[in-house]
Nucleic acid binder design. Structure first.
Lengths: 236, 236
DNA sequence: CGTGCTTTTGAATAGTATCAAGGCCGGTGG
DNA sequence: CCACCGGCCTTGATACTATTCAAAAGCACG
């Protein structure tokens, strides 16, 4: 194991492993593996057996679920410090992934096997609590996303998806970075519509200059309603 | 405290408190309070200060969020043994609820204050792990719900909501029990549409006899797609 | 210089929300 | 007892929105 593989010197300060006791960080360091995934590669596929937990060291990942008519739906995005493959540990031994995870750009992912993770839970209270808080936060964000999915027009959902992208990946200039990693089809899969609608609405938003406004938005994923989504519900 | 207030003899075997060590169950028993809420009463309101964690002893609760145009959206349903007001503990001291919780029928809810809960986390590893698993499960269910919200037609969303109702509350005869607790407006708020659509689609489903089929459905909230929702995607 | 891929635009169709009006109770007070 | 009220449920007509199908333009790559 080289130095770049060390959890102690890892630049990502958000990684949950850091909340373990020092000797446990060492232990996880020793058992974990670190893999590079190219853009478009699968980290895991639906129905693969769950063998452990993934930590995104750096990169951008989409978690997709095959929905009705085989239409792909992006249920979650994961960036630096996030975890992938929750639901794996703790359940029955023969658990399988209900979703697939695909790299949106070249990414480095750490992997810790089930046994180690599970034992770490029992030995590192803070670690479990942090993870629980993470789930709790994700759950809340999900509730908000679901609410908006249910109530918004397509145009608003698309705008909202851009905000979500910015929130998770922290894009600065929506335009270029966005085009680099995310296709129109991806945005559609995130917004629950088709690529044609995405294209139409993006050009409209661009005409109005709303895209730049979106880039400046700082959504609070809990209490606040989106203010400038350029739709009927616009409240600027 | 009378006997019915005891966590040891509580009939609900799913309650998370049971995964604490015996002496901690006693401690929680002593500090907790137990309140009856009538149908329609609020357990907590959006922006109330979070003071602890609620456990549904028995009853049916809807967790609602005010969405766009002030339209109510039901983001979650909670039945026996479920918890309410997650997100409270652990965060900043002055946390507030991002949602409201309302009783759908007369319900009994236990309440444990923040300090006790938080200390219990640190002293009862199994307790935290169970809670984490619960969140993880809820998160997964939420991802599925979101996917369907995004991809389904109104008709299918309504059918799906009925399955969700059955899953959480375990209705046997959809018809009567459903009408007793849930109004058409509630189903609309759960499905992300309006009461008119709910009415139209329910009568259609009834004509086709699909309602009864729905009652027999046993949805797997993870991998399986709904098979008999009586829409375009129907695959009977 | 095709070939395959994503993006873009158009037109026809289907689905959904909204508005308006009326029906059906259960309760309340004259 | 009956009339009235307010609640929820139901139905219809209309305007709007979104999906789908089709076709073409742009672009990278061998």
């Amino acid at each position: 194991m080289n130095d770049s593989n060390s959890c102690l010197t890892c630049v990502d300060s958000n990684c949950f492993i850091k909340s373990c006791y020092p000797d446990w960080i060492f232990r996880i360091m020793k058992t974990k593996s670190e893999t590079k995934y190219k853009k478009g590669e699968y980290i895991f596929r639906v129905r693969d057996h769950v063998k452990g937990l993934f930590f995104v060291k750096n990169g951008k990942i989409k978690v997709v679920s095959t929905g009705l008519n085989g239409k792909e739906q992006i249920v979650r995005l994961a960036g630096n410090g996030h975890i992938l493959g929750h639901r794996g540990f703790g359940g029955k031994s023969k658990e399988v992934y209900p979703v697939s995870a695909i790299a949106l750009e070249d990414s480095v992912i750490c992997f810790v096997d089930n046994d180690t993770i599970y034992e770490a839970f029992y030995m590192n209270t803070q670690f479990v609590i942090e993870l629980m808080m993470f789930y709790s936060k994700e759950l809340r964000a999900m509730e908000v996303r679901m609410k908006y999915m249910a109530q918004m027009t397509v145009r608003e959902r698309i705008a909202f998806s851009l905000l979500y992208l910015k929130d998770v990946f922290g894009y600065e200039s929506s335009e270029q970075e966005l085009n680099a990693n995310i296709s129109r089809a991806d945005i559609a899969a995130l917004s629950g519509t088709n690529k044609e609608q995405v294209i139409r609405n993006l050009t409209e938003l661009e005409k109005e200059g709303s895209l730049l406004m979106l880039a400046d938005e700082n959504p609070d994923w809990g209490t606040k309603s989106p203010q400038t989504l350029g739709g009927n519900h616009m409240t600027i």
